[in-house]
Design a protein around this nucleic acid. Structure first.
Lengths: 148, 148
DNA sequence: TTAGATGCAAAGCTTTTGCAGGATA
DNA sequence: TATCCTGCAAAAGCTTTGCATCTAA
């Protein structure tokens, strides 16, 4: 017990996304529902919008390029997606969960990103925020390094 | 004393840029020199490439859109420029100096990014890297928050 | 019923590229 | 002089938008 079930992250995000969209008074049409489902599944690691568009197309049902871009932008505005730059300079989106306490380790050789948890680092971030006089809403920590 | 003179950052960066380009065996033509000068002056805060292109044009001399994009990409590859996302989702570049040990605070309300230095946080990052078994080559820390 | 969602296709931007001619080391 | 750099213009992506048509609530 204590460890998350497979797909748990995706499911939790999808639930929260539906809640947030509803709370904003936005309707849930077929295209929007499909896009959110694909995002929940594929944007656990950063993805570009074009990949999401292709995934939606592969899915066969509703969802056009325009819809996907619109949903991604709305989800980002609602704080459901984080926008960042990929190694190639292109824009990537990644799902955000409210209780995230993890950081990223980027392998300089492979370019691969792996998440990790570090309580000391977490504490240092909180203290730094306090010293700066702000209430921290989220953080993005990326350590780049090479394996010896 | 101890504080930097005006234009000092730009000058130091420009010197270093010329050194690095020379060290790579790259030649210094008119367009490249102009672009580097404009970058040193304008990319102290994040700017988009199109702004640099316009600045180069205003300057009147050598330098085309293609040159500017090429110089920016080379400077980024040489570690002279940092690439990041602006609040509007567009790509921005900012000059990098070797002795930077700073982090970023992003104001959730305004989207504004301000740099800060925190030795404790710096230490926590080093220790986290050690625990992960990697040699840290650089880091990117972004604390998002709101002023109470 | 009605404001909002969707798809299509075109427009708008940013960024990259091919090539002929010019300049640097 | 042999490379390398430049500029032009076109191409290639990515993202946004207008609008007519549907549809969720």
């Amino acid at each position: 017990m204590g460890s998350a079930a497979p797909g748990d992250t995706a499911d939790r995000w999808l639930d929260r996304a539906h809640e947030r969209f509803a709370a904003e008074g936005l309707r849930m049409g077929a295209a929007r529902a499909t896009a959110l489902g694909v995002i929940a599944r594929d944007a656990i690691c950063p993805v570009c919008v074009q990949d999401l568009v292709r995934a939606v197309r592969r899915q066969g049902g509703a969802g056009s390029q325009a819809s996907v871009y619109r949903v991604v932008e709305q989800a980002h505005r609602l704080g459901l997606l984080r926008r960042e730059l990929g190694p190639d300079g292109g824009v990537r989106y990644e799902i955000v969960l409210p209780d995230e306490g993890h950081h990223h380790l980027v392998d300089d050789d492979s370019g691969e990103t792996v998440p990790f948890v570090d309580d000391d680092l977490e504490r240092a971030l909180r203290q730094a925020a306090r010293r700066l006089g702000v209430r921290m809403t989220s953080h993005d920590v990326r350590i780049r390094g090479v394996r010896p």
